[in-house]
Amino acid sequence: MTARSTHAPIIQMKDIQKHFGSVIALAGVSVDIFPGECHCLLGDNGAGKSTFIKTMSGVHKPTHGEIIFEGQPMNFEDPRDSIAAGIATVYQDLAMIPLMSVSRNFFMGNEPTKTVAGFPFYDKEYAARVTMEEMSRMGINLRGPDQAVGTLSGGERQTVAIARAVHFGAKVLILDEPTSALGVRQTSNVLATIDKVRKQDIAVVFITHNVRHAMAVGDRFTVLNRGKTLGTAQRGQITPEELQDLMAGGQELATLEGSLGGTV
């Protein structure tokens, strides 16, 4: 872990505050993200996880605070700017279009073109070939590039979306609860994908409220609670039980857990 901390962070979020009218969604959160790490962002519903990553990906502008991306203060006007800079976000159920083929989904918004008679046409052969290559690298067995995304499982869809982001040069990959709707087998596939991506020196921000999933792949863990961070812990310095308590804000869950016999 110390090796990772020696090189410079790719994103520094400094004292980020975000207010929506009278609601304070984020009350000063600071996090550093390093290349090649899987940074888990944990928190219960309403803790401010979504607001925080939307600030990072340029959807929201922070009310107060500074975002440093690759050493430069950044000021994204809209999500397209952040995509261009290399910050890709994969949303839980808004990643893929079920009626479209895998290859058309894969290149959506980044369609390859070839010029025929002076006109740029969609390069179907290239799209099909690259899609098949990337999918087999991620361990997804497609019938063909024209197979509709609707026939894939939820985990496979997440994997296609992650492979797409990596293929198009993401340096930071934000995953918004990628495992929350998945079964056991599919979850482990997605976690394995996260591990592959991290090894390519891409920073992964993994949002989840499942401690088990976080512990499986996380290098560092930041817990958000009621718009505040309760600190960042490194792998090996914290137990799942401690993380769980932090997420729930301590006391109440400990009591509840006692009455449920440690099954939560």
């Binding site: 999500p79 995509i83 949303y91 279009i97 959506m108």
Partner: peptide
């Protein structure tokens, strides 16, 4: 196709 299939997903993809 993307705009009609799922406008929000298409926007997220640029």
């Amino acid at each position: 196709f993307a705009a009609g299939g799922d406008a929000q997903a298409a926007r997220y993809a640029g």
